[in-house]
């Protein structure tokens, strides 16, 4: 197995969970409590936030005003007052919100210190009661009405989509046996890389020439001006050179099609691309990147920044 896959699979993020005061017993008197992190956790990069929601709420249940079952369908996480899209892998949301931090740390020429190495991600848990009329649910909020089943279904559709992009149809995904589908989802929940690789290798073409297109999503960093995160950009990426030149398709070739401004007057690439918390090089082969850094939903998520 590719050793990079194993390293990426083990990647984790330090998360600080803050809780909205209205969710805590004591309400507004708990202002001091909502300004401090109530939990410090470490999440694997390649998982989804809702997978840990019940566990988070269980740890907080002595301080919570409402029952956990009541909270789950009407709660959301935010970073800097913006709703976090629960349907993206945690690592992707982290990279979108903390891209400047990742870039500045990579440029750090000073000897690394604890402060410069350890990065924490503060996110806040919110809840809105059905009866509350003085405020609305935030724009972009998708309720988790069916709990984990909803997440599983969403994830399955992403793999069908990725399968269609790679192979020209979702047939391979649809022909998986029931037990294979179940073990594929369990491999995500149980953090079993071998189980994940066993099923995903049936869907992903074995060689570069087998790819119809590569499932890639571009994300732009956290935006203070809009209500929420921007929609992702899904480029058409083929692994065949348009001209007669040989050599692999590199990242710069595909990114410049959508972002030509990322090249300066001298022909030098001036942007930053981040995937799985790693700053990518413009000369990296797209096929190699997909093979090593693909996310659990079958897509390679790349955060593009020009800062």
């Amino acid at each position: 197995m590719n050793p990079l896959r194993s390293l990426v699979w083990k990647g984790e993020i330090n998360v600080q969970i803050y809780v909205e005061e209205s969710l805590l017993i004591g309400g507004k008197q708990q202002q001091h409590a909502s300004s401090k992190p109530l939990l410090n956790l470490r999440f694997p990069r390649d998982t989804f936030l809702p997978m840990y929601l019940t566990s988070i709420l269980n740890q907080l249940k002595l301080s919570l005003k409402y029952e956990i079952e009541k909270i789950i369908p009407r709660c959301w996480f935010s970073y800097n007052e913006k709703v976090l899209p629960w349907f993206l892998p945690i690592g992707v949301i982290f990279d979108m919100t903390m891209s400047n931090d990742i870039i500045s740390r990579s440029n750090d020429t000073i000897k690394p210190t604890r402060r410069s190495i350890i990065s924490t991600w503060p996110i806040k848990l919110h809840f809105k009661q059905k009866e509350e009329t003085d405020r609305k649910l935030p724009y972009g909020f998708i309720p988790l009405i069916a709990g984990e089943g909803q997440l599983e279904s969403f994830w399955m559709h992403r793999w069908k989509q990725a399968c269609f992009i790679m192979n020209g149809s979702s047939k391979i995904m649809m022909q998986l046996a029931r037990h294979e589908t179940v073990s594929f989802w369990n491999s995500i929940k149980q953090r079993d890389l071998d189980g994940f690789t066993e099923i995903s290798s049936k869907i992903i073409p074995a060689s570069e020439s087998g790819f119809r297109m590569v499932p890639i999503k571009y994300h732009l960093p956290y935006n203070n001006e809009t209500n929420n995160f921007e929609s992702p950009i899904q480029p058409v990426v083929k692994l065949i050179q348009n001209d007669n030149s040989k050599g692999p398709i590199v990242l710069q070739d595909v990114i410049l099609k959508d972002f030509p401004d990322l090249i300066d007057i001298n022909g030098e690439f001036k942007g930053f691309m981040i995937a799985q918390g790693i700053i990518l090089q413009p000369s990296d082969s797209v096929y190699e990147l997909y093979s090593s850094l693909l996310n659990i939903d079958g897509f390679l998520h790349i955060i593009i920044s020009n800062s």
């Binding site: 903390m98 400047n100 350890i118 990065s119 960093p221 956290y222």
Partner: peptide, 8 residues
Amino acid sequence: HSHTLNSG
């Protein structure tokens, strides 16, 4: 306008 958060 990106908010930079340094660890620590």
